[in-house]
Design a protein around this nucleic acid. Structure first.
Length: 626
DNA sequence: AGCCTTTGACCAGCG
DNA sequence: TCGCTGGTCAAAGGC
């Protein structure tokens, strides 16, 4: 199922390189929590506006994807310590590619964007109304002038595995699935070296066929390290399922790496993509332009596309999801639009349906998606939506956004004091339209997923008139840790299973065993939490106190999500992973520790783990001391 | 033979 | 108008 575990494996690493950055982090840690929490307490419309970081706005405006900008960089053990590596993301998920994302009926919203100088989304920016959808260039300029050099990200070069960067702003948009876990990967990331100039020896690349979770991530990285070969022909990245022809390569100013230009080889498809690869052949940036108006080539014709049992299984799953998805009701505007897009895409051929649902979008902090929106690019109008950093959104803003993006990139470069190789933390967003028949038997819709440290899936019962909501949290690196929170009362009969495949166990990646502790929630307005197998993280099941909160009640923290997924310098893979905790604790002002204490619980720390430390403390403790 | 990459040249947008 | 830059073209060559 393209639910939780299938979707995301994102990793990012970045390290504040100077004391100033630490201060920024501290501010972010302290400020974002509160803010986001408050934001989340607002009604949906409000939060939508807040989220307006732009993606949502543009999505709404354009009803589709157009030019997702995917920035990725895999950071591994860096043998070249002298070279600064950008924060890396590793996405490898068979069938989940940017293209897949384009096809995804559900997308993320800007709130997911990592707050950063380049995203123009600095919730902690003094004097800036964080609820605003966009900021003028002047404001950005002023801001950058103020923040400027102090905001510098330095990539971690020591970790064998990058650490996923969580989304920045997350709004409790409806009932989405906010997945913050490094559990899925996008194929694009696995594209290895295509063809490198500068006498670089061509490697092959690509596609990690994965399954789920960390295993996939790690395998994907291993694949990378092995120089896994999946390049099409001479090196066209094809793990996204499409065939590409390289038509140019150029060293772009300000970029440390050459940029390759690819066109979709389909005669009637004008989709293009730009790929930047590091010297090692790691993709540092992928920018898609346009939407495929055709289906992916048959697997057996996808040169360079690994089609193994895993992928086949996933394809089957996706098909199954498509079959099921039509019966579910979207719970928010965005999703409805997405659904519309989906239909349009299917009917109009704008959206290739190959991957259908679920997907991973890796977004760099500069902009989540590029905004090349000339008419040609909007050929796939149905499936086009441009997502920009500024959240301005609106017709005809593509060029402007692009310009702004470039401008911001320039800023980022300047601020980094080096090159674009120093990238900001990336945000990986997973979107799904999974509809699950949970272990409780009710059909719930999982509308959205965002990746952060903790996967948080929001479900809404699809039964007419039923307002029950369910929130499932899973530890990013331990999917067995599950916390389920109910709101409302389960006032209708449990629908009969529609699909044996779900079999009451379609909890988006939560196995029956993992939900075996399910208990019938009490009637009435409430929230109930349960855990399953969380002993793996804390030695014993959580002892949650009732979480009383607003209806939407699951506070998302911009800060916690982002920071919660930060790669901590000096931490190796595994070490770098923050403790698996319900993000709601991360979202608490003061960090997890404080949140937990307020809840009267004490995190159990596994021997040798750092679980007991608050995220912020952990992060801060590893930052350079001022 | 077909498809792809390579790569220098060309074009267009922008300041 | 000019130079810079990003994007594209297209000939050459490889597989």
């Amino acid at each position: 199922m393209s639910g939780f575990e299938e979707n995301v494996a994102v990793m990012g690493e970045w390290v504040p390189c100077n004391p100033s950055s630490k201060r920024v982090l501290e501010r972010e840690l302290s400020l974002n929590h509160g803010q986001v929490t408050s934001n989340n307490n607002k009604d949906s419309s409000q939060t939508n506006n807040i989220s307006g970081g732009g993606l949502r706005e543009r999505i709404a405006a354009r009803a589709g994807f157009n030019t997702p900008r995917l920035n990725t960089e895999n950071i591994r053990s860096n043998t070249d310590s002298s070279s600064l590596r950008s924060p890396c993301l590793t996405i490898s998920s068979p069938g989940l590619s940017p293209a897949t994302l384009l096809d995804s009926p559900v997308f993320l919203s800007n709130p997911l964007a990592q707050p950063s100088p380049t995203t123009g989304k600095f919730p902690f920016l003094p004097g800036v109304n964080c609820n605003r959808l966009s900021y003028s260039d002047k404001e950005k300029d002023e801001f950058f002038d103020g923040v400027g050099a102090s905001f510098t990200f330095h990539p971690v070069s020591t970790s064998s595995s990058s650490f996923f960067q969580g989304a920045g702003e997350m709004t409790p948009v409806d009932y989405g699935n906010y997945n913050n876990s490094p559990s899925h990967q996008s194929p694009e990331e696995d594209v290895k070296l295509g063809s490198e100039q500068s006498g670089l020896k061509r490697k092959s690349s690509d596609a990690t066929t994965n399954t789920n979770d960390h295993q996939e991530v790690e395998e994907g990285e291993e694949e990378e390290q092995r120089g896994g070969d999946s390049m099409v022909g001479g090196g066209a990245p094809a793990e996204d399922g499409y065939n590409w022809r390289k038509y140019g390569q150029k060293l772009v100013k300000g970029s440390e790496y050459p940029r390759s230009y690819y066109k979709c080889t389909n005669p009637n498809c004008h989709v293009k993509k730009k790929v930047e690869r590091s010297r090692e052949g790691h993709i540092t940036e992928i920018i898609y332009k346009g939407a495929h108006n055709h289906s992916k080539p048959p697997p057996n014709r996808r040169s360079g596309m690994q089609v193994d049992g895993t992928e086949q299984a996933e394809q089957q799953q996706r098909q199954q999801q498509r079959d099921n998805a039509g019966t579910w009701v979207s719970s928010n505007n965005t999703q409805q639009q997405v659904g519309s897009n989906e239909n349009n895409g299917e009917e109009g051929g704008q959206y290739e349906s190959g991957d259908g649902y679920g997907g991973v979008i890796m977004v760099d902090a500069l902009s989540t998606f590029s905004n090349d929106e000339d008419e040609d690019d909007r050929e796939g109008t149905h499936g086009s939506a441009s997502l920009g950093y500024d959240g301005g959104g609106g017709e005809g803003e593509g060029d402007e956004s692009e310009s702004k993006r470039r401008k911001l990139e320039a800023y980022a470069t300047e601020m980094s004091g080096a090159t674009r190789a120093i990238r900001e933390p990336r945000v990986v967003v997973q979107t799904t339209s999974d509809v699950d028949i949970l272990d409780d038997g009710y059909r719930l819709q999982n509308s959205m997923t965002l990746n952060t440290l903790v996967s948080s899936s929001y479900y809404k019962c699809t039964a007419p008139g039923c307002t029950v909501r369910k929130h499932v949290e899973r530890a990013s690196h331990d999917l067995k840790s599950v916390i389920t929170t109910y709101e409302g009362k389960h006032d209708h009969e449990v629908p009969a299973a529609r699909n044996s495949s779900h079999g009451g166990n379609g909890n988006s990646g939560v196995s029956a065993a993992q939900t075996q502790h399910y208990q019938e929630p009490p009637r009435g307005r409430f929230e109930r939490q349960l855990t399953a197998n969380n002993q793996s993280q804390f030695g014993r099941p959580f002892s949650f106190q009732p979480h009383l909160g607003p209806p939407s009640g699951f506070a998302f923290g911009l800060g916690q999500t982002g920071l919660g997924n930060l790669s901590i310098p000096g931490l190796a893979f595994g070490q770098g992973k923050l403790p698996s905790l319900p993000y709601q604790y991360l979202s608490q002002p003061g960090g997890m520790s404080e949140a937990m204490m307020r809840r009267g619980m004490e995190p159990k720390v596994e021997p040798g783990s750092e679980t007991g430390q608050s995220v912020s403390n952990q992060i801060m403790s590893r930052l350079p001391q001022i």
